[in-house]
Amino acid sequence: MTGAQKPTGRIPGFLRRREWLLAVLIVIVYFVFNSQLPESYTVVNLLNQSRVYMVDVGFMAVGMLMVLILGDIDISVASIAALASTVMAVTYNAGQGLPFLVSVGLMLLVGLVCGLINGLLVTRFHELFPMIITLATQTLYRGIAYIILKDQSAGSFPSWFSKDLGYGSVRILGVEVPLMLICILAVFPLYYLWIHRTAPGRRMFAAGTNITASRYSGVRTDRLKMTAFVFNGVMAAVAGIFLCSRTGSVKYTIAAGFEMQAIAVAILGGASTSGGRGSVVGLLLALVLMTALKNGLMLLYNDAFILNLSIGLMLILIVLVPNLWNMYRSMRTLRRQRLAISKS
């Protein structure tokens, strides 16, 4: 199935790696919008808006990448974020309940437990696809949030949380960089090393490429899957933290549909739902590209649905175009060979 993805011809050198393709796209998107909206579409504005487009979905995508590399999928992340946020908001209870940091700790714990449940179900029932399992837990987790919160909303977080973390920024080289952005950017170097340079990271790619062969080679695939799902759950809770600080209140519908955005970003960044592929650098660039694109479209059209439309198009095209290109290349090679034969 994946045979078609092997480049047989030569894609213009530098574009062959997804990372470069994304970088080029980022530059193009930036200049196109910048020429349309020279006033409002600037780096400063992009940095400012990165709070909305990059952080919470970004954390979810970080967790999702690991799951996708292993060849699994987790569509319960947004529900985990919702449940964790709900637990946090309800236990903190606008200052009447637990101390805030304890509530946040509880929130991470909820993320961990939800991820653990997903991981256990996936590793104990190999016959079931992770998609199906997390489909059910998606409804379950959000359902629990619904039971807890009913159709109410909760909020009134400490001001440092909703003001400083949510909208604060740090001045670096004369540019206001949102605190949130720094938080997520700090994760990437460590994540890069983990995924691409350590032995467990390598084994994750191995397990995603061929799980049977990896198991026969002594890779503890179940343990890796547990790690990925738990990590994913915790990252979903972390995403929930930033989402709460940005929006200031929690409803049970919070983060609805974010799982698809997270998956879309990871795939845009070079991951594949069939496993064994993915890149941390690609993920970061895909996030930047999404931010640049979403922000520009939002300024131009002020319309969330147009935004979705363009993300959908990009998602399909970035996978489809290289496939078509490869098909075209191999057809051309064949034609040339045939020509050589008929001449001789």
């Binding site: 979705n308 439309l309 993300i311 959908g312 996978v319």
Partner: peptide
């Protein structure tokens, strides 16, 4: 294109 990816993208496009 893998069906999940294609229809995920199409979901966005069609809603748009």
């Amino acid at each position: 294109v893998l069906s999940i990816v294609a229809t995920l993208g199409m979901q966005y496009i069609i809603y748009g």
